[in-house]
């Protein structure tokens, strides 16, 4: 066996979706973002969508680099503004699929308001949130997802705040597809991302991913493999559970699964209905002027 033909054949199945000239990427050894990125590319390939109909938008942060490594229409937006950019893209070209891939800090800290309002309007976007429990790129500062008591650069004594439950937040704001997996549930994650891409409406997929360099190291889980297993071993699959009960509790259950799947008109559906005059005047029961003032106050 000669080595030269083998080297010529060594072409990874994802290479046609990767900007290979930028690989190896900047993510640390053992970072979970690469696994999620691989799942995303596998889902895009499986979906069979034409390449010109898929766009990836990301914000700032480690996960935000995804847009720079994928050989599709992609944009690396300003911090927290991935969803507004994606909204514009989606409305300008509604037949395409827009995927927002970003981190917990970008989507739900600085971009929190954009997130809740896009979920409320049920924008037809697929949001992939890689949750690594801290701001990895800037050196491991406190994030809204950092578990209570966990140590970060800015909370050396332990985090005094309660973290967000992103899936409960998304569901409460009106997201029509909500799921969570850890980075080791790879096959299920790929299927979920595929479902989320095909789902019409605001689809939110949270992935609990290891950050061994910035988060694991300060919390005495040093190895990437240990951190990957730590999340996986505590996870319990509970599909269609009430999102409020889908807690990330490291002492008992890290609940994963698909929590919400609803069929709800999107923003564009409502907008077109209003413009065509298909929506009745508000309030739907009408206002009876003669009955006004009949009911006693108090």
């Amino acid at each position: 066996m000669t080595t030269a033909p083998a080297a010529a054949l060594a072409r990874h199945p994802h290479d046609d979706l990767l900007r290979t000239e930028r690989i190896p990427h900047i993510w640390c050894s053992g970072c979970g973002i690469g696994i999620v990125f691989g799942s995303l590319m596998a889902a895009i390939t499986k979906s069979g969508l034409p390449r010109q109909d898929v766009a990836v938008v990301s914000g700032i942060g480690c996960t935000g680099r995804m847009a720079g490594y994928i050989r599709l229409d992609s944009f690396h937006t300003t911090h927290g503004r991935a969803i507004p950019f994606a909204t514009g893209l989606q409305l300008a070209r509604p037949q395409g699929k827009v995927i927002v891939a970003s981190g917990d800090g970008d989507l739900l800290a600085i971009g929190g308001n954009h997130f809740i309002h896009a979920a409320r309007r049920n924008m037809d976007l697929t949001i992939i949130c890689v949750n690594n429990f801290n701001y990895g790129m800037t050196g491991g500062q406190l994030a809204p997802s950092t578990p209570y008591g966990a140590k970060t650069t800015t909370t050396p004594q332990g985090n005094p705040d309660e973290p967000f439950n992103f899936c409960a937040l998304a569901a409460a704001c009106g997201a029509s597809y909500v799921a969570r997996w850890t980075a080791l549930h790879i096959r299920r994650l790929t299927n979920t991302i595929l479902e989320a891409i095909h789902h019409r409406g605001f689809s939110f997929v949270e992935v609990v991913a290891p950050c061994p360099t910035a988060f694991g190291r300060r919390n005495k889980i040093r190895g990437a493999l240990d951190l990957l297993r730590f999340y996986y071993d505590r996870s319990v699959v509970k599909n269609h559970i009430a999102p409020g009960e889908a807690t990330i509790d490291f002492d008992h259950h890290l609940v994963v699964g698909k929590f919400v799947e609803l069929d709800r008109p999107t923003f564009l559906d409502h907008y077109q209905m209003v413009n065509r005059g298909q929506v009745e005047a508000w309030p739907a029961t009408g206002v009876d002027a003669s009955a006004a003032g009949q009911r006693k106050a108090g």
């Binding site: 054949l9 990874h12 199945p13 994802h14 290479d15 990767l18 690989i23 190896p24 990427h25 993510w27 053992g30 970072c31 979970g32 973002i33 690469g34 696994i35 990125f37 691989g38 799942s39 596998a42 080791l184 790879i186 096959r187 790929t190």
Partner: peptide, 22 residues
């Protein structure tokens, strides 16, 4: 599984015949 778990896109497998050749 090595292919999907690798965060670096550095390993993959492909089908081979009985002698191990592609």
């Amino acid at each position: 599984f090595c292919e999907v778990i690798c965060p670096e896109f550095a390993i993959f497998s492909s089908e081979a015949d009985a002698a191990g050749n592609q």
